[in-house]
Amino acid sequence: MRRLTHLERLEAESIHIMREVAAEAAKPVMLYSVGKDSAVMLHLAKKAFYPSPPPFPLMHVDTTWKFKDMYALREKAAQDAGMELLVWQNPEAKERGINPFDHGALHTDMWKTQGLKQALDHHGFDAAFGGARRDEEKSRAKERIFSFRTANHGWDPKQQRPELWNLYNAKKAKGESIRVFPLSNWTELDIWQYIMAENIEIVPLYFAAPRPTYEYEGGLFMADDIDRLEKVMGHRPEITERSVRFRTLGCSPLTGAVESEASTLADVVQEMLLTTTSERQGRVIDQDEGGAGMEKKKQEGYF
C-alpha cells in the first residue's frame, strides 16, 4: 500500500492526458511559451513517452518581444528533449511593425491570437497542448481538459463536451481542432513545488538579480533591449538598476517586474505565498473589458 502524493497524482494525470492525445490525434503539437508552466508541461511530456522522445514538435508563437533569456532557453529546452522546435511569427504583424507601445491590445491580438491561428492552420495541427491552469482565472475554471475549437478556432462555453472520469472524446470533423490542457488541475503552488522536486530548468528571470529597469505608465519594466525600446518609444527611457524578478513571463514591455531579493526557488515560493497580489496582475491582458477580458479573448481564439 502506497499513498500517492498530490504531485504524483497530478503528474500521472497529465501523462495520461498526453498519451491519449498522442494515440488519438492525427497531428498534435505542444505550444511552448518558455514560461514556468511550459517548462513543467515539457518535462511531463518527456516523462510520458520515455524512452521515446515526445512524438510531436514544440511550437513557439513568437511576438519578437520576448526576453532574450527566454529565446536562449527555448532552443536549449527543445534540444534537450529531442524535439523539433517550430517558431511562428505572424508575417502581417511583422510587416506592419505591430508593437506593444503603439498598438496596445492589437499587439496581443495580432501576434498571439492571430499568430496562433495562422500557425495551427499552416501546419495543419489538429490538437495543441497548452499550459493553462484552471486556477489562473475564472473562465479557465470551467474549461475542459480537451477543449474543442471550431474550424475558426472559436470557443463556445455553452457547447463544451461533458468530460467524465478520465475518458476524453478526441473526435472531431475535418478542419476542427482541440486544445488540450494537461495542467488543468495544477495550481501555481503545485507548479513551483514540482519544479523544486524535479529540478526543472526555468528562465533565470524568475529569480531576483540586479537588472536595468524603467518605469512606464505606473509599472516597472526591464529594459531587455534598450536600443529597440528607444526606437519604438521615441525616447530613451530612464534606466535604474534594481533587484527585480518576474512572476510571469510574456512580452518584455508588457510584463511588469517586481522588486525582490528572492534569488532561490524557496525564496521565490516564499514570496509567492506571502504576497497578496495574484499572478496575472502583472500582465495587462486580463484587465481589458472588465472582468470578462479572458473569456472574450478565448471566444476569439486566444489560448
Binding site: 473562465s139 463544451q160 472582468g291 472574450k296
Partner: peptide, 18 residues
C-alpha cells in the same frame, strides 16, 4: 465564472476550484 452566468446570477456548468 462566466460573464453570461454572472448576469443571470446562476452557475451553468461544471467549474473546478482548488
Amino acid at each position: 465564472g462566466l460573464a453570461a452566468e454572472r448576469e443571470q446570477g446562476i452557475t451553468i456548468d461544471v467549474a473546478y476550484r482548488f
